[in-house]
Amino acid sequence: MSNTIGQTLKGKRERLGMTLNELEKQTNVKRETLVLIENNDFEALKNPNYAEGIIMKYAKAVNTDSSILIHHHREELPQPAERQYDKSIEQFSGPNPPMYKTQNKDSRQLVIWLSGFIILTAVLWVLAVLFL
C-alpha cells in the first residue's frame, strides 16, 4: 500500500527531526494548513486550488521532489475549478440537458400589472384635471 502525499511529507519531516513550528517558519505556511496537508485534507484548505503550491513549499523544505510526488498522487488533489466547469458544460451540452424554465413568467406578469397601473393612474389624472 502506498503512502498518501500527506503521509509521505510528514514522514520526511519526522525523519529530519523537524517540528511543525520549524516547518511553519521555513515555509511561511500556517501550522494549521501544514496539519491539513499532512492529513491529506486538501478540501478543508481555505482555497483548495493552492494545494499544489503548498505541497511544493513543504516538499522543498523536507528535501523531496514535489513534481514526482504530485504526479504520482494527482488523484488525491482537489480538482481545479476549470475541470469542474468542464463537467458542467458537458452536462448541459449532452443529449439530455437538465430541464429548466426557458422563460420567467413572473417578470412578464409584473410588467403587465405595472403597465395597467400606470395607464389607470394616467386616466384618473386626466379625469381629475378635466372635472375639477
Rank of each mutant, 00 (worst) to 15 (best):
V35S: 15
V35C: 05
L36C: 14
L36P: 01
L36N: 07
E38L: 14
E38W: 08
E38H: 08
N39F: 04
N39I: 03
N39S: 10
N39T: 05
N39M: 11
N40S: 15
D41N: 13
D41E: 13
F42Q: 01
F42K: 01
F42L: 05
F42A: 03
E43I: 05
E43S: 07
A44V: 09
A44G: 08
A44H: 09
L45E: 06
K46D: 15
K46Y: 11
N47M: 02
N47C: 01
N47H: 07
N47I: 05
N49E: 07
Y50D: 10
A51D: 05
E52C: 07
E52M: 08
E52V: 12
E52I: 10
E52K: 07
G53R: 11
G53E: 12
I54R: 00
I54W: 03
I55F: 13
M56H: 09
M56N: 07
M56R: 13
K57E: 13
K57T: 04
K57I: 03
K57Y: 12
Y58C: 00
Y58P: 01
Y58K: 02
A59F: 14
A59P: 14
K60W: 12
K60C: 10
K60D: 15
K60L: 14
K60V: 12
K60T: 15
A61T: 05
A61K: 00
V62W: 00
V62L: 04
V62N: 02
N63I: 05
N63Y: 15
T64C: 13
T64M: 13
D65Y: 08
D65M: 05
